[in-house]
Amino acid sequence: MAASAGSPAVQTPARASLNRRVLLLGLVVVAALLAVLLLNLGRDPHSIRSPLVGRAAPAFSLPPVGGGAPVTSESLRGRPLVLNFWATWCAPCIEEHETLVSTARALGRDVQFLGVVYEDEEDRVQVFLRRHGSSYPSLLDPDAKTAIAYGVAGVPETYFIDAAGVIRAKVAYPLSPEAMAENIRKVRP
């Protein structure tokens, strides 16, 4: 492309114009897009809220670790239940294990604590429980059907179920003593 000789002639633009239609349409689209993105900032897209909170806890009938008759959800009706899905390969589960064991011991027969093993092997679980101690039984869920029914997407996940069998809270992170106390209050006023 040939260059034009001499200094560039600056062409003053033709009369200033404002296309109001373009302006309006453009600003509407821009505002809508920005609003959607802005409202979602800060939200963690990987945390899935449970739809089961406020609804009946799914029934289960699972064998305990170490053998024995299956424990059914029916038999636990009448007392609040803390159902904790965990695994030995899960570091945060090991963190909260202490909290769970001591709270279970402290509450005694007022609240039933149960662990459900998720994607793990019985002998590894038994070794773990022997080493770290336990004050409540853990159940085996080998085909993960109960985990699926509860909407488990990872471990640890803990469900707080009241005496009538309704899920009152779901916690998808390791429980500190404070969080534990706060959630226990929801099922045992």
Binding site: P58, A59, F60, S61, L62, D143, A149
Partner: peptide
């Protein structure tokens, strides 16, 4: 019991 599997009957849901 066998039909129930691990406890929950999907028909209930």
């Amino acid at each position: 019991a066998a039909a129930q599997g691990t406890g929950e009957d999907p028909a209930q849901v």
